[in-house]
Design a protein around this nucleic acid. Structure first.
Lengths: 223, 223
DNA sequence: TAATATATTTAAGCATACTTAAATACATAA
DNA sequence: TTATGTATTTAAGTATGCTTAAATATATTA
């Protein structure tokens, strides 16, 4: 039987897979804020239990069973977030941490009832899609990170990474929220930061921040 | 910092205190379904952390801090139960086990928001009172166990113990629910069971069951 | 009061999930 | 290709919360 720790590992793995669908132990350790040794330890157990494909010194892949668990945790997490934000009125920068705990303590039955109560939401309060009972996610709009925009591009904020510490509260403080429109004023080569304009304020976003805010480009009006 | 296990112990202690406000390790072990040795172990930790008054071979008492935690857990538990039953429509015989998990994973903030959302319910789906933020419970009606009724007494069901395994589903099956009226047909001395009439059916309740269903006596109409 | 039964504690051991320190493998750059 | 740095694993150790078996204290009954 899977336990809370394993659920956390699988979720962290899934959230941080690279383009090849893999992740290195080192990155996993840093995401979970534990030692590399602890990761090695747990990988042996996850492998033994059939949740990951793992061989010494190699990158980690999820088995389809592991991926199933991970997606289900994401589903639980995001449905709880919607409930907390939408029904209970909890601010969007607080729901992640709360959902992190609730996701381990709720049966699929509760989650399904909640989903129905919430009228089948498609995204969580940060713009991330919610997997359905079968792990399918609705193909979402093509979004790109702010760092991928060019000077003079306009874009609408669609998604903000809720898994980066303090990002949401910072982002809220400077006036960014889902649906807000931004304009790229400048891109600074030397540190990868981006100067944006939002509601008549100009703000410099560090590369780390800009790369975790996802937007939909607004077509330029010819004139 | 208190952990889930400790929360479970404190809750179990509080739920099962005798008239003197004490409980023996043996009873605690059987309620938690673990060995006496494990209880001894944990009591030392709870005592070290200031949650219980404990001396070797003596009965256990809660400190006021321990009692505070216990009451808070009861509050969380019962508010979750109301939510699950009332908002999500989960049957009353299933909400206990689910709440048992959720109670450990929710901040006071969530509980307070939930309480407000539910419009400050006074009792859980099994008729138990919900402590307020300060641990105060509204003085509830005087209820007695069915075993304390006499032949020909009529009574209304006010409360059913949700902490006894399978009791609720059994009780539901035989047609007992909060608000239902029963009539005592007979009390059998030799095994302490009670013969009741409910909705024209006559049912024999074992002593264990009858002692866990609480009622309010209905005044006899003279005729 | 002494014998017996029951409750409680102690002791030794196990699994989990971590830690740090040391050993080893792998990757990169001269 | 070798040297160096980084990633990964192994080893040893810790706290938690259990277990069973044995020892001891307390309660009950003859």
């Amino acid at each position: 039987m899977i336990n809370i720790s394993q659920e956390d590992y699988l979720t962290a793995i899934f959230r941080n897979l690279d383009d090849a669908g893999e992740i290195k132990p080192n990155l996993l350790a840093s995401k979970l804020e534990i030692s590399n040794a602890a990761v090695t330890d747990m990988l042996r157990k996850l492998s033994r239990d059939g949740f990951v494909d793992y061989q010494k010194y190699k990158s980690i892949k999820l088995t389809s069973e592991g991926e199933g668990y991970a997606k289900n945790m994401l589903r639980r997490h995001r449905i709880w977030e919607v409930f907390l934000h939408q029904t209970l009125g909890m601010p969007w920068d607080k729901v992640h941490d709360e959902a992190e705990k609730l996701e381990h303590s709720s049966s699929d039955e509760i989650i399904n009832l909640l989903e129905e109560f919430l009228d089948y939401p498609e995204v969580d309060p940060h713009g991330y899609p919610i997997p359905d009972k079968n792990g399918k996610m609705k193909k979402s709009k093509t979004v790109i990170a702010i760092t991928e925009l060019n000077e003079n591009d306009s874009a609408k904020v669609i998604r903000v990474n809720d898994d980066v510490k303090n990002l949401l509260s910072y982002v809220t403080k400077i006036g960014i929220a889902l649906g807000k429109v931004i304009l790229i004023k400048d891109k600074l080569e030397y540190d990868g930061s981006v100067l944006i304009k939002i509601e008549n304020k100009e703000i410099n976003l560090s590369n780390k921040i800009a790369s975790n805010i996802f937007v939909e480009k607004i077509k330029q009006v010819m004139r």
